[in-house]
Computed example of a mutant assay.
Amino acid sequence: MTNTAFKQASYQDILDLPDNTVGEIINGHLETHPRPTPKHALASSSLGDELVSPFQKGKGGPGGWWIIDEPECHLGPHVLVPDLAGWRRQGMPALPETAWFETVPDWICEILSPSTARVDRIVKMPTYAELGIGYLWLIDPVLQTLEAYELRDRHWPLAGSYADDDPIAIAPFAEHAFSLSDLWE
């Protein structure tokens, strides 16, 4: 019988990774993936562009949010790096002085890629639910789709699926509409 003792990952494991690798600690395990591909990065940057002006800066929208690319979130035992995250300023009035965030985001967006989709769906989605994050978007730049979820009783019922040039005006950002196809162009 073999002893396969589990070694709890530490933050030092993340610091020791090569520069082109993103590391996260989820349920004590070190999860790694390469930096995003250009399609992945374009979708993430384009979504940030759509949300920052109306929701962070209040230009043409209600303001009241922080929208951050690839924030390092230290949440309980987890170190998570979503592609985008948003915090209502009422819950986090100022940005932290640290290089990471310890306040649970109100919204998370993961841009799916072949190297991250399995972890994003199977490992991170339940962790995000456990943490009480209210909204989760999954965007697939290859299939050109967006799945929106709203947390209910620590589960993720699908709030809507979008494809092609569907108009996007969904919670928690329903006050601003844009075309899903804007994320790929």
Rank of each mutant, 00 (worst) to 15 (best):
V104Y: 10
T4L: 14
P96H: 01
P157C: 07
G28C: 10
L151D: 08
Q90N: 15
M1G: 15
S161K: 11
K7P: 00
E150K: 04
I25V: 04
P18V: 05
S53Q: 06
G86Q: 00
L151T: 06
E147Y: 03
A43W: 02
D153M: 15
H78F: 08
R35V: 15
I122M: 06
A174Y: 03
T145M: 10
P93F: 11
E130M: 13
L136P: 05
Y128R: 03
P54A: 01
Q90K: 15
L75Y: 01
W107C: 01
P96D: 06
I26K: 03
S179M: 06
G23Y: 00
D120Q: 10
Y162D: 13
A117C: 08
E185K: 08
S115T: 05
P96V: 02
P62W: 03
I26G: 03
T2Q: 11
P114G: 05
T37V: 02
V123Y: 01
D49Y: 10
W100C: 10
W100A: 11
A174W: 05
A94E: 15
P105L: 00
W137M: 00
V123I: 07
D166W: 03
K39L: 11
S115H: 02
K7F: 10
L42I: 11
R118F: 14
S46Q: 12
G132T: 13
D140K: 01
D140F: 01
L80N: 07
A148S: 05
E97C: 08
P34W: 03
S46Y: 02
W184N: 07
I108D: 01
L180D: 13
Q90M: 14
E150Y: 03
W100R: 04
D49G: 13
E50L: 08
R152L: 12
I26V: 12
D49F: 14
Q56S: 09
I139Y: 05
P141Y: 09
I111A: 09
P77V: 11
E31T: 13
T32W: 01
A171S: 06
I133D: 00
N27Q: 10
G58S: 03
H155G: 09
W156D: 04
S179R: 07
G63V: 12
P141N: 09
A99G: 12
